[in-house]
Amino acid sequence: MDIDLFVAAHRAEWDRLAELVRRAGRLRGPEADELVLLYQRVATHLSIVRAAAPDPALLGRLSPLVARARAAVTGSHAQSWAGVGRFLARDLPAAIYGGRRWWVAAGVIFLVTGGLIAAWVAGDPQVQATIAAPEEIRSLTAPGGDFETYYSSAPAASFAARVWTNNAWLAAGCLVLGALLGVPVVVILLYNAVTVGVAAGLMAAAGRLDIFFGLVTPHGLLELTALFVAAGSGLRLGWTVVDPGGESRGSALARLGRSVGGVALGLALVLLVSGLIEAFVTPSGLPTWARIGIGLLAEAAFLGYVLIFGRHASAAGHTGDVDAAYAGDTAREAG
């Protein structure tokens, strides 16, 4: 293909499309129709260039032009505040609410496991001896020991960022690895339950269980709830691999996967809040009742948000999946 001849033949259409894109918000009916028509033509031109003569300079001109034209024709939904509002008020709570049986079950598994481990560690000195040397345990559990000073071991802002990052990776692991039949999710959940149970058991054996709950409760309620939601979503995804219901496995995983992606974004916000509480409230000089009260308020706000908005969205038929217009095409499976 002669590039110079191709450019000469279509330059006027490209220039006209660029002009219409610049005025996209002020176009009249005939001009809007012209925009759509030229967008289709120039998109075809771009395909021809890519296939027949991928000239870098011409591709550099047509690719961004077609992208801007596409945004002008379809609308910039990704940056729409209305879209953000729909996500927060409808899609996110619907997705979390729809998986409530899974994350409640994950929470029960965690709490029962952690409680049994804590009771076992607290009541058996031999078990404690296998965990760490006596001096190490005293260093952890004594007044002013490592367990208490951990929450003030770094500047609050730095500590909050570190905690948020660690917890976000943990939640992401539960969500992403759920497709592996949920097995890694169970491992992550049980590992963290054992970790919390051991710490609680050691503090209880030292007669300082009240200090444990006074430090863990303010941020731990919201943080653990986010972990339960992530684990429940991952387990739900893993079960879909086993039993996709009345649809194809690929379609079921795609639908639930899009919903889980939204949950991941929402949990990042939730974990940011819990991280701020852990950095600024947990080690603060506030009375224990005040610190726990802040944690209870944060937990109640999140659960109320999920139950109220989620129930309403679910009753309206929403599942947390994206609108059909943005879900993409589905290939027919052989069968």
Rank of each mutant, 00 (worst) to 15 (best):
333 E>K: 01
2 D>N: 14
187 V>W: 10
174 C>F: 08
166 N>F: 13
205 A>V: 10
55 D>R: 09
283 P>F: 02
133 A>K: 12
228 F>T: 00
134 P>V: 09
132 A>Q: 14
147 F>L: 04
168 A>N: 09
6 F>S: 05
297 L>N: 07
243 D>P: 06
103 W>R: 04
99 G>R: 02
285 G>M: 12
218 P>A: 14
232 G>W: 01
81 W>S: 08
203 M>D: 05
294 I>E: 01
131 I>G: 08
56 P>V: 05
171 A>F: 02
241 V>R: 13
307 L>W: 10
152 S>Y: 04
203 M>N: 05
34 E>M: 05
272 L>Q: 08
118 A>I: 04
272 L>T: 11
63 S>W: 00
78 A>N: 02
44 T>M: 11
241 V>F: 01
278 E>W: 01
132 A>M: 09
123 G>E: 11
98 G>P: 01
233 S>W: 01
174 C>H: 08
162 R>G: 07
220 G>W: 00
313 A>H: 03
114 G>D: 00
286 L>I: 09
164 W>M: 15
149 T>M: 12
314 S>E: 12
191 Y>L: 13
292 I>D: 11
167 N>H: 02
333 E>M: 06
129 A>I: 04
275 G>N: 03
162 R>M: 02
249 R>L: 07
311 R>S: 15
327 A>P: 12
203 M>Q: 11
290 A>T: 12
250 G>A: 10
274 S>E: 09
74 T>V: 11
28 R>T: 15
